[in-house]
Design a binder for these strands. Structure first.
Length: 223
DNA sequence: GTCTGATCATCA
DNA sequence: TGATGATCAGAC
């Protein structure tokens, strides 16, 4: 695998995105000397890792923005045959052990979504992985309105967690943000607090952005 | 086990 | 057919 150094400037990152736009995943993989898997069933994060490598993301699996120096997070946006987002977007893990006075301004969700490089990628399963095209990426920062709703969602969900109701939260809650399981499988357990403050075990969860939200972002960008 | 990268598989 | 809940891989 060829190692690409992290971009020094936002401008350099954008330049790399422009080189990427219009390439197939097969072409990108060939340039990096990476083998394309037959399908994603056992390689779910492959596309994301490939494009991170191409652009020189340097955060690894740390809980930080991908481009640490620029404070920018890379998110691939899988598109269906209609050019619409196909899946929700994972944001970060729901921290189980945080204190109840955690504020939005310091939250992981806010930090990760402060500055995002969205990178649309074809994701129709009928198309061979190597033949799928990468689209034109764009840098996004939440508008005042968007951040307001994200913050409301986050605060409502966090309130429930602080009350020890985390185990009862379903993916149906939240306008833009939702909480869903995020683990190797449903048997994985992590420590949290029950509704009476007692230590309990639940399946780990993560924050996700609904497709309704990313669909809006995409439409705003390309219309 | 905990984080990252996500998509899969099932059912309403 | 879209959304929810489940799952896969890799680094540390």
């Amino acid at each position: 695998m060829i190692a690409i150094p992290p971009p020094d400037t936002q401008h350099e990152l954008i330049r790399r995105c422009q080189q990427l736009a219009g390439k197939t995943l097969g072409q990108v993989a060939a340039e990096l000397g990476v083998v394309v898997p037959d399908d994603l069933r056992r390689h779910k994060g492959w596309v994301g890792q490939l494009l991170e490598n191409y652009l020189g993301a340097d955060a690894g699996n740390q809980a930080e923005p991908d481009f640490t120096r620029l404070g920018i997070e890379l998110k691939t946006l899988p598109l269906n045959a209609n050019g619409q987002p196909k899946e929700s977007t994972y944001v970060c893990t729901v921290t189980l052990t945080e204190s109840g006075n955690m504020q939005w301004q310091q939250s992981w969700v806010k930090k990760k979504l402060a500055h995002v490089l969205w990178l649309p990628v074809e994701a129709e399963s009928a198309t061979a992985l190597a033949q799928r095209y990468v689209g034109q990426g764009w840098l996004w920062q939440p508008t005042v309105e968007q951040e307001k709703i994200l913050r409301q969602d986050w605060e409502e969900l966090m309130d429930r967690i602080v009350l020890g109701e985390q185990a009862d939260i379903t993916a149906k809650e939240g306008h833009y943000l939702q909480i869903r399981p995020k683990a190797a499988n449903s048997r994985v357990m992590a420590k949290t607090r029950g509704d009476e403050g007692e230590a309990t075990l639940i399946n780990p969860k993560g924050f996700y952005l609904r497709t309704a939200f990313t669909r809006e972002l995409l439409a705003t960008q390309f219309n």
